[in-house]
Lab assay of single mutants.
Amino acid sequence: ATVHVKGVTYHFDNPEQAEKFAKRMAKELNGEVHVDGNTWHVD
């Protein structure tokens, strides 16, 4: 799974980790999470 945060890409072997990371980053950055298959975007 892949997480894109403000133009930076993070790779996770575990999709659950990717989801938790994306949601945590969105919270910290006051952003929104969008999911597209195995790819998470934090804007």
Results as ranks from 00 to 15, higher is better:
33 V>P: 04
1 A>H: 13
42 V>T: 02
36 D>W: 11
43 D>T: 15
28 E>H: 08
29 L>S: 05
39 T>N: 13
35 V>F: 15
39 T>K: 11
28 E>F: 07
16 E>S: 10
33 V>L: 13
14 N>F: 09
42 V>E: 01
24 R>A: 14
32 E>T: 15
38 N>Y: 10
6 K>A: 14
21 F>A: 03
31 G>M: 15
17 Q>C: 07
31 G>Q: 06
11 H>N: 08
27 K>H: 12
10 Y>H: 06
33 V>R: 02
33 V>G: 02
25 M>L: 11
19 E>R: 06
40 W>K: 01
17 Q>Y: 07
29 L>T: 07
43 D>A: 13
37 G>Y: 03
4 H>N: 09
39 T>A: 14
16 E>T: 10
1 A>P: 12
15 P>T: 10
1 A>T: 08
33 V>Q: 03
36 D>A: 10
28 E>L: 10
23 K>N: 12
17 Q>L: 12
4 H>S: 09
24 R>S: 11
18 A>R: 01
5 V>N: 02
6 K>S: 14
1 A>R: 04
2 T>G: 03
26 A>W: 03
38 N>E: 06
15 P>H: 11
41 H>C: 05
3 V>I: 02
24 R>H: 14
22 A>C: 03
3 V>R: 00
18 A>F: 00
15 P>A: 14
6 K>G: 15
34 H>M: 09
37 G>L: 04
19 E>Y: 06
8 V>M: 12
23 K>R: 12
8 V>E: 10
24 R>M: 14
11 H>A: 07
17 Q>A: 13
7 G>A: 04
10 Y>A: 02
10 Y>C: 03
1 A>F: 15
11 H>F: 14
30 N>A: 08
21 F>Q: 01
13 D>E: 12
27 K>E: 13
43 D>V: 15
1 A>K: 04
16 E>D: 12
35 V>G: 10
20 K>R: 13
43 D>E: 14
16 E>W: 11
17 Q>I: 09
1 A>I: 13
38 N>L: 11
16 E>C: 06
41 H>N: 07
40 W>F: 13
12 F>W: 03
10 Y>S: 02
4 H>M: 13
39 T>H: 15
42 V>H: 01
26 A>M: 04
29 L>K: 03
25 M>C: 06
19 E>F: 05
34 H>F: 12
24 R>K: 14
43 D>Y: 15
29 L>N: 05
29 L>Q: 04
18 A>I: 00
11 H>I: 09
29 L>I: 10
35 V>R: 15
34 H>D: 04
27 K>R: 10
20 K>L: 13
20 K>G: 07
22 A>D: 00
4 H>F: 13
11 H>C: 06
32 E>Q: 14
29 L>Y: 07
27 K>F: 12
33 V>D: 02
11 H>Y: 14
9 T>M: 11
26 A>F: 02
40 W>D: 01
4 H>E: 08
30 N>V: 05
34 H>P: 01
3 V>M: 01
12 F>V: 01
3 V>Y: 00
32 E>I: 15
35 V>Y: 14
32 E>W: 15
31 G>V: 12
25 M>G: 01
23 K>I: 14
23 K>H: 14
23 K>M: 13
4 H>P: 00
13 D>P: 11
33 V>Y: 12
35 V>K: 14
39 T>R: 12
31 G>S: 08
39 T>F: 07
15 P>R: 12
35 V>N: 13
6 K>M: 15
33 V>M: 08
28 E>Q: 10
32 E>N: 12
32 E>V: 15
34 H>N: 07
7 G>K: 04
32 E>G: 08
13 D>H: 09
31 G>I: 06
14 N>V: 07
4 H>C: 06
17 Q>T: 11
37 G>R: 05
9 T>V: 14
12 F>L: 02
19 E>A: 09
22 A>M: 02
18 A>K: 00
41 H>K: 09
7 G>F: 04
29 L>P: 01
11 H>V: 10
11 H>K: 09
37 G>Q: 06
20 K>S: 13
5 V>P: 00
10 Y>R: 03
20 K>P: 03
23 K>F: 13
7 G>R: 04
40 W>L: 05
35 V>L: 11
37 G>A: 05
24 R>T: 11
11 H>L: 09
21 F>H: 02
32 E>H: 14
15 P>W: 12
8 V>F: 11
14 N>Q: 08
13 D>G: 08
6 K>P: 03
18 A>G: 04
14 N>L: 09
5 V>H: 05
41 H>A: 06
41 H>I: 15
2 T>S: 10
12 F>E: 00
40 W>G: 01
